[in-house]
Structures are given as C-alpha cells and as structure tokens.
Design a protein around this nucleic acid. Sequence first.
DNA 1: AAAGTAATGTCATAAGATTCACAAATGCCC
DNA 2: GGGCATTTGTGAATCTTATGACATTACTTT
Lengths: 210, 210
Amino acid sequence: MKALKIPEATITRLSIYSRFLKRLDKKGITTVSSGDIAEGVGVSPAQVRKDLAYFGEFGTRGVGYNVKDLIRYTVKILGLSEPWNLVMVGAGNLGSALVTYREFKDRGFTIVGVFDNDLTKIGKRIADLEVLPLEDLPRVVKENNVRIGIIAVPAKAAQEIADIMVKAGLEAILNFAPISLNVPDHVEVRNVDLSVKLEILTFNLALREK
Amino acid sequence: MKALKIPEATITRLSIYSRFLKRLDKKGITTVSSGDIAEGVGVSPAQVRKDLAYFGEFGTRGVGYNVKDLIRYTVKILGLSEPWNLVMVGAGNLGSALVTYREFKDRGFTIVGVFDNDLTKIGKRIADLEVLPLEDLPRVVKENNVRIGIIAVPAKAAQEIADIMVKAGLEAILNFAPISLNVPDHVEVRNVDLSVKLEILTFNLALREK
DNA sequence: AAAGTAATGTCATAAGATTCACAAATGCCC
DNA sequence: GGGCATTTGTGAATCTTATGACATTACTTT
C-alpha cells in the first residue's frame, strides 16, 4: 500500500463506497462503473476514480469494476478484513442504542463490553451484555484484544473516560461527547458530533430568509 | 451577513466554538482569545479568527473576545436565536436515544413528534411523546411549524421516509441512515454516518501495522 | 478485423482551505 | 504619557483537494 498521505475525505468516501457496493452485491449486480458509484453516493465519477487510484488499479478500462472484487479491496484498505472488538463506555440511551446498532455488526465490529459508573446502570443487560463497572474495563480490553473504545457519556465525564481508556492501552477512541479530548499522540481520536450537522441545516435555512 | 460563500467546514467549527464558549461562560470566564478557543477545540488560532472574519469583527485587538457577546454572535450566525421544532421518524433504539438526547435541547431543538410505521412501536411513549403513525406526520409538521426532520430508520426504509418528509413540506433532513437520499434541490440533507468515523480509525490502525 | 462505444487511470489545471506574517489597535506598567 | 505586551483582522502565500480532459484499453457489433 502506498505511503503517500491520503486525504481523510478519501477514506470517508471509501467507507461510503464500500457500503454502497455491498448493497449492489446483495442485489446481484456484478459490475459497476465509477459513474454508477458516483451517482449512488452523490459525488463525481472523477472523484471516485481518484479516490481508488490512491490504492491501486482495481478496474478494467472500457468495462468498470467487478463489484465483489472492489468490495474486497475497499474492505481491505479500510482495515476491515478481520473483525474488530470494541468497548463502549456509557450505558445511557445513546450508548445502549449504539451497542445494538446493526450497522456496526454488519461492518465487522463487535462490542464486547459496556461500562458505566452509574450504579443504577451497572448490572443492567443490553443485548447480551451486562453493564459492568469501569474498573473492569482494563481486564475486558486485555482479554479481548480490544484496541478501540467508544465514549457515549456526557461531555463533563468524557475526558476522565478517555484517560481511563488510554491507561488501559486503547489505541483509538470514537467520541460521541461534544467536547475535544486530550490524549497522547499515539492515540487516535475521532469525534462524532450529533448536533453539528443539525446546525449546518439551521445555518442554511436561516440564510434563506436573507 | 455576507453573501460570499462560506466553507461548510467553517460552519462546522463555528458550531463547535459556540458550544465551547458556552462552557467557558458557565465557568464564569468573560474574555477569551483566539488562541484559547483554538486550544480548547483543537484548531489553529488563525483558523478561529479567519472563521469569525467571514461574519464580521467581533473582537478587540490586544484583548480578545467577550465570551457572552461571541456566544450571541455565533448563535445568531448558526440560526439558533430562535428555537427549532423537529420531527423524528424512527422509534427504534437510535431514534429513541436521539429524542431524549440532552444536547439537542440545550442547543434549542425540540422534538415535537416521533413517528414509526411499526405497529409494535406506535403508542409507545418516549420521553413525553407518544409514537405516532407516519400518516400523522404532515399534520404535526403543520401544527408546529416544523421545517426539519430527522431520519433514524434502517437504510432500506430511508428513501421512502424522505419522500414523505418532502411531501409534508419539510425543508431540511438530518439523515442517520447509511444511504444517500434523493430529494429535490430545495430540500437540504445532511448525513450523520455513525460508522464512517469508526472506519477511519480502523484504517489508521491498519496503517500502523505496515 | 475494423470501427465504434464505453470506461478507466492519470496528468494538468483549477478551486478551495489553511497558514503565515504583520500592520493596527488596545490595555498595562512604570 | 511613552513604551511594551497582546491580540485582532487580513492580504498574500502555501498547501491541499477536486475537476477536467484525454490517451489508453476493452468490449461489441457488423
């Protein structure tokens, strides 16, 4: 795989292409063009080809791409050839919803532990998991080779959770709390901010009134 | 407000600055520099100033920004001076979690109706709302001046819901289904994809092995 | 088998976003 | 009240990302 720097936007789109392709495959479609993909996910055909070109030549000129092959390639590129175990911290409404979120499972993610420090939540069952106290996190991480943690707690508790995750040896954190986390350089963080996109919509609607 | 085109990334950051500032305000901090904001949210100081500069001059040279004033400005820019009523379609785990999501309320969003077409969910209560059948959506939209809808249904049902929302006169859609929606140009759509960011993490972790 | 059509891969170009660097303005200290 | 510290606002420069255009390759049809 090339060493040159890949735009994060490319990875984002690759993830979207990958899922779109799986849907095509399920419909029995075997060949697809960059134009088809582009139309299906809302980007330009040149963009699709460019994104794929970072990683190799996967298509056939005059023909297009083999759907199954391209799925395999995108999955490989995204690091999803092998399944991933995750831990979730936060057993509130959002945390619970994410634990049972079908799309995660479909993409090869398995949540192997749910944690909270709220005594009213510990012991509760979510899907087939029992909510455990935070002290158990390091053990579960070790036992299941977990490298990625998800944070779904209120903003004010998030940094403390991040610290615990770092100490437990996690290498990456997906953060749903609307706050920027402080972690060492060797830990990757990505934030999913649920209200930002909503505010982009209100910004745009407000503009219309002008 | 300027007519020139604002990068969407700027709006995204503005939303983040705005919430960061509210947190400072709650702590009693009255003045803040672009450097403080930058550090707090993880961008460069120049970026903060540049983002604000699209909309006016809000600071005082040699001093910084007045926190309360800047909150007012960012809220105004984002179109959040007045509260927004929303409708939610999808009363599954994710939809339910979003209906009770505190951050939405804090930013001035009120969900005034939750809809589903699953008979086992209709009639269920989420927070203080009763889940209604989809037929009731147009009425609730009209009665509450709703302009924005949220979709939290499985991918295969999402387009149908989008069509219903468009027909009901909604102007913007926040889509949590991992699929690209087809809507007329006058309807704004933004997708929140819960697994894309996770796959950026796996991509990066997979790179490390190289 | 030649001509026509389709679609990739990629180089060149254009567009867009971020960073730099500094003049201008403010407050503070001696 | 003059000089020093700060910190904004911004035009220019840089870096990054997306688009355009086309040569190349493959398939299809006659």
